[in-house]
């Protein structure tokens, strides 16, 4: 038995290595003293220090976080409304259309979403003079359009699992529709809302393609800065930044996992 387990363990180890060694290397070299990313010359945290003084990178990070947070919040509201309509309102006129619209962003290539939105913004500007210049607003709108679809998927499955008679019971006990939503539905789908928010936040934070299409001069998001600076030669600052992002994303995933792992009510 023991001997036969070895090949399997080997495959497993290879799988883990394939997935995690690059990330671990990246984190490892962020503590490298040398300017050359691939040559180890001693432990140092100086790149983290330099990162904190790099205005361009910090501005981009702040912009990205603002976009991601706004996007996540709006996407959760819109995505939840869409999920509600699909789960609770049976067969209404335009249901198929809504379902199609909600799945489209999940399968559509980013390049097409980015390009089509850019064309839309340009056309709108010529027609009604808005949006006047591209930047925070246009990127946020673009991100909302696709991340609300992801939120809708998450919330929809949670709503679908929820026993509809819970809402009826609340109404039967004297709660008006809004009260039912506030006291019963929202608390029960809260974990889905949280993980939807985190998902939308992450999607927005690491989007490069769509943002490149719909941003304008002066509005450079973090992935755009990283991408362009890597093209001019990798600086260990980027490693440091990536390490920080990995840390934040890991934390978010852990939080989402814990909140979803809590046994939902039947």
């Amino acid at each position: 038995m023991k001997r036969r387990a070895w090949p399997l363990l080997g495959v497993l180890a290879f799988g883990y290595a394939f997935l995690y060694v690059p990330i671990l290397l990246l984190i490892f070299y962020s503590f490298n003293e040398s300017r050359l990313v691939t040559v180890w010359s001693g432990f140092s945290v100086k790149w983290y220090g330099e990162l904190l003084h790099n205005r361009q990178l910090l501005d981009a990070a702040w912009l990205s976080i603002r976009i991601a947070a706004t996007n996540a919040t709006v996407a959760v509201v819109l995505g939840t409304l869409a999920a509600n309509a699909l789960v609770r309102h049976g067969r209404f006129r335009g249901r198929t259309g809504l379902e199609l619209l909600l799945t489209a962003p999940l399968v559509m290539p980013d390049v097409i979403i980015g390009l089509s939105l850019l064309l839309l913004f340009v056309a709108l500007r010529e027609l009604i003079g808005w949006p006047d210049g591209r930047g925070f607003t246009t990127i946020t709108i673009a991100h909302i359009t696709f991340s609300m679809a992801y939120v809708a998927v998450v919330v929809r499955s949670r709503l679908g699992q929820m026993d509809a008679s819970l809402e009826e019971a609340a109404m039967d006990l004297g709660a008006r529709p809004l009260g039912v939503y506030r006291q019963i539905t929202l608390p029960l789908i809260a974990p889905a809302l949280l993980s939807g928010w985190l998902l939308a936040f992450t999607l927005s934070l690491d989007d490069l393609v769509i943002a490149s299409f719909v941003s304008g001069p002066g509005a450079t998001t973090l992935p755009m800065v990283v991408y362009s600076s890597v093209r001019m030669g990798v600086s260990p600052q980027i490693n440091a930044l990536a390490t920080l992002i990995v840390a934040v994303v890991t934390l978010a995933v852990v939080i989402a996992g814990i909140s979803l792992g809590r046994k939902p009510g039947r």
Partner: peptide
């Protein structure tokens, strides 16, 4: 509408609110 009727119902699935204690469930109405 159901919330304004002098009628209450016991559901087949019981439909107890899973995020509330027994006490809070009974108190809800």
């Amino acid at each position: 509408p159901p919330y304004a009727r002098p009628v209450n119902m016991m559901f087949q699935s019981y439909a107890l609110f899973p995020h509330m204690t027994v006490e809070q469930n009974v108190e809800f109405g």
